[in-house]
């Protein structure tokens, strides 16, 4: 019985890691589509969001099945609850990556204007955070998860600077307001993805240490 549960939990871990990899790949592709104004790649990101959604449903069903059939407790229970929550964060990251891809499609049709803040750099930070959260999930490394939490502050700060810069640019050059709003939107999606990554890290800390650390940091973005 217990061995059966342990096998199922191992399977669940593989599933959530694979979903994690899919979300990470979507983000990478979306950022690349934006940088290279590649509409084909952007469409691909939007397409593959369906498979992420399907995968998310499967993981959730798997979790509900394990809860109903095995009534797990302690670490097993915390693991499943954490997976349930990480699962919806990953699904949202997939959605937000698709939104970035949609912005890329719009921007591809507009005149090329460089972003006032380096979006590639911002995207890199978010990617590093997502990768680190994946590593901390694989290795149950709560130190790494805590480090990722502090990285979110830099992303928030970048978004704040972007917001101010875009306002200034629009005031200077109101003809390109659509382009600037799209660029701002991209940075907003990136900032949100980073927020979901912090949720994931908080869930990993809960899973490993049983400590709930949510809602302890000051509200991140205040504009």
């Amino acid at each position: 019985m217990t061995q059966h549960l342990q096998r199922e939990l191992a399977k669940l871990k593989r599933k959530i890691l694979s979903l994690c990899a899919m979300a990470e790949e979507s983000l990478q592709m979306a950022v690349k589509a934006l940088e290279t104004r590649d509409s084909k790649l952007a469409k691909e990101v939007i397409e593959r969001d369906y498979s992420i959604d399907q995968e998310e449903v499967e993981v959730e069903e798997e979790c509900l099945k394990l809860l109903a059939l095995h009534q797990p407790v302690a670490i097993d229970l915390r693991f499943i609850v954490a997976v349930l929550k990480i699962n919806s964060d990953l699904e949202r990251i997939g959605d937000l990556s698709a939104h970035i891809a949609e912005r890329a499609l719009v921007l591809q049709k507009s005149t090329y204007i460089p972003s006032p803040i380096n979006l590639a750099e911002m995207a890199d930070k978010v990617k590093v955070m997502l990768e680190a959260s994946l590593d901390s999930l694989v290795n149950m490394d709560t130190d790494l998860a805590r480090k990722v939490l502090t990285m979110d502050d830099h992303v928030d700060e970048t978004y704040r600077r972007m917001y101010e810069a875009v306002i200034k640019k629009i005031q200077e050059n109101s003809e390109e307001v659509v382009v600037y709003l799209n660029l701002l939107s991209v940075s907003r999606q990136l900032e949100r993805i980073a927020d979901h990554v912090t949720n994931i890290c908080e869930d990993i800390i809960y899973m490993a240490d049983g400590e709930i650390i949510r809602h302890q940091r000051p509200n991140a973005v205040v504009l």
Binding site: M1, T2, V73, A74, I75, D76, L77, R78
Partner: peptide, 18 residues
């Protein structure tokens, strides 16, 4: 506490059926 987040590893191993 015992069934969600036991302090002792032995308790965790027992309640999870290890």
């Amino acid at each position: 506490h015992i069934f969600t987040n036991p302090t002792e590893e032995k308790t965790e191993d027992y309640v999870t059926g290890r």
